[in-house]
């Protein structure tokens, strides 16, 4: 039921782990199924230098977490805020319909982590 890309990111997820003294952290729970994702960002001068994640969730949740972190690494905050769950799903060659809600977890966690950073650093550059 999952694409090869999903299975690849599930079996070998990129950027798993935590960052010590992160610039921003976002934790979100999936309203639909109760699964949880946590994202750690290392931000320097408006650019995401490093990103790590931890996920309690299904195969799709783990794969989308992995893909989302790959997609925002090295990007400016402004660019990263434009990440959508659809774009993440597309980058994984699609997700089954019932699994689309899982990809929201990644989008929302990225946004929450950036917001956390902005709240702590209101005057920081966004790009």
């Amino acid at each position: 039921m999952y694409s090869e890309k999903v299975m690849d990111h599930f079996s070998n997820p990129r950027n798993v782990g935590e960052i010590e003294n992160p610039s921003g952290v976002g934790t979100v729970g999936n309203a639909k199924c109760g699964d949880i994702m946590k994202i750690f960002l290392d931000i320097d001068n408006g650019v995401i230098r490093d990103v790590k994640f931890k996920t309690f969730g299904c195969g799709a949740a783990i794969a989308t977490s992995s893909m989302a972190t790959e997609m925002i690494k090295g990007k400016t905050l402004k660019e990263a805020l434009k990440l959508t769950n659809k774009a993440v799903a597309e980058a994984l060659d699609g997700l089954p319909e019932v699994k689309m809600h899982c990809s929201l977890l990644a989008e929302e966690a990225v946004k929450a982590a950036i917001e956390d950073y902005i709240a702590k650093n209101p005057d920081a550059p966004m790009e």
Binding site: M7, F10, S11, C33, F56, G57, A61
Partner: peptide
């Protein structure tokens, strides 16, 4: 940990089992 991720991992090793996890049922 979550059941579907566990089932997928077992399946990658050729082991077929099942789970009461929401994520496998489609019902959430």
């Amino acid at each position: 940990i979550e059941g579907e991720a566990l089932l997928l991992s077992l399946d990658l090793k050729g082991i077929a089992a099942s789970s009461g996890s929401a994520c496998t049922s489609g019902s959430l």
